[in-house]
């Protein structure tokens, strides 16, 4: 009983401290916001580097949720708390815009993907294309053309090389480009069409060997990004805009290129296509 007044005093002191602490937190929150981006898995390596670069120049913090574009899209439709969406294609961004879930003015083509016919098997090194054409392999891995833009592009390449029918029985399909890589890296498929960005850094292949497919053999793999329409506090909107500006700046663009993507607006595509061919 005698200890009661002391308890009261302790509680009141603690509550004063709590109020002060929460005021402090709220104060710092207005300075540095945390935003969350939804990013297609194939872009994870450059995005991680870009975020690090951004955070070193800004007080804002960026969290990134990687996943397949289709899954991220479904999550966005069901209210996932993302500020922006970096898709592996253009369709899903168009879909969100037409559904009124994204800001059309913010839309950018942030990267154009390149395909590589890749192998982890050293005996095939340097002769990937010949192996593909002569059928000297057991399995050819591609990403699901119905779901993954890199898979659709791979099918276009096979069509252009008139190998669609020959390879039919040998094709195995990964649900996304990461799994397709896994099939080839584990040696279960001797050849596979994967994203160049998965095995490329600073002008060199980081593993295995491959034939970088000329852009002329398939439609450009354009990857679009868009800012999502959400009820957001002003602070987070400012942080998103800051990241958006940084992302389109030179430093970020150079990072994207280092990972084997092409950058630039879609209108420049035909010029580069001739160069590549």
């Amino acid at each position: 009983m005698a200890s009661r007044p002391i308890q009261y005093r302790m509680i009141s002191r603690a509550s004063v401290a709590l109020v002060a602490l929460s005021a402090l937190l709220r104060c710092s929150a207005t300075l540095a916001e945390e935003i969350t981006l939804a990013v297609a898995s194939n872009f994870s390596a450059p995005m991680t580097e870009i975020v690090t670069a951004f955070e070193s120049t800004s007080e804002h913090r960026v969290r990134v949720a990687f996943g397949s574009s289709g899954k991220l899209l479904a999550q966005i439709q069901h209210g996932a708390p993302f500020e922006a969406f970096f898709s592996a294609d253009q369709d899903k961004v168009s879909y969100l815009i037409s559904a009124g879930s994204a800001d059309p003015a913010s839309r950018i083509t942030y990267a154009r993907g390149r395909l590589i016919l890749w192998t982890a098997n050293s005996t095939l090194a340097g002769g990937e294309r010949q192996a593909l054409e002569s059928g000297a392999f057991r399995h050819l891995a591609i990403a699901n053309p119905r779901l993954a833009p890199y898979g659709a592009a791979a099918m276009e390449v096979l069509h252009a090389l008139k190998l669609e029918d020959e390879t039919r029985a040998k094709r195995v399909v990964g649900e996304n480009i990461a799994q397709t890589y896994q099939y080839v890296a584990s040696g279960n498929a001797q050849l596979g069409f994967i994203a160049l960005s998965q095995v490329f850094l600073n002008g060199n292949l980081t593993a295995g060997s491959g034939w970088i497919v000329p852009d002329t053999l398939h439609q450009p793999i354009r990857q679009d990004a868009v800012i999502l329409q959400r009820d957001r506090e002003q602070g987070r909107r400012t942080a998103t805009d800051a990241f958006w500006a940084f992302f389109q700046g030179q430093q970020a663009q150079r990072i994207i290129e280092r990972y084997g993507y092409r950058v630039g607006t879609p209108t420049q595509t035909p010029v580069e296509k001739v160069d590549a061919g």
Binding site: G70, A74, A141, N144, L147, V172, V173, E175
Partner: peptide, 19 residues
């Protein structure tokens, strides 16, 4: 490897449809 008639079972097919 999602091969019709060989390894593409119902759960994978559903996943494909959703994606």
């Amino acid at each position: 490897g999602n091969i019709p008639g060989e390894t593409r079972v119902v759960s994978v097919q559903i996943y494909d449809h959703v994606e």
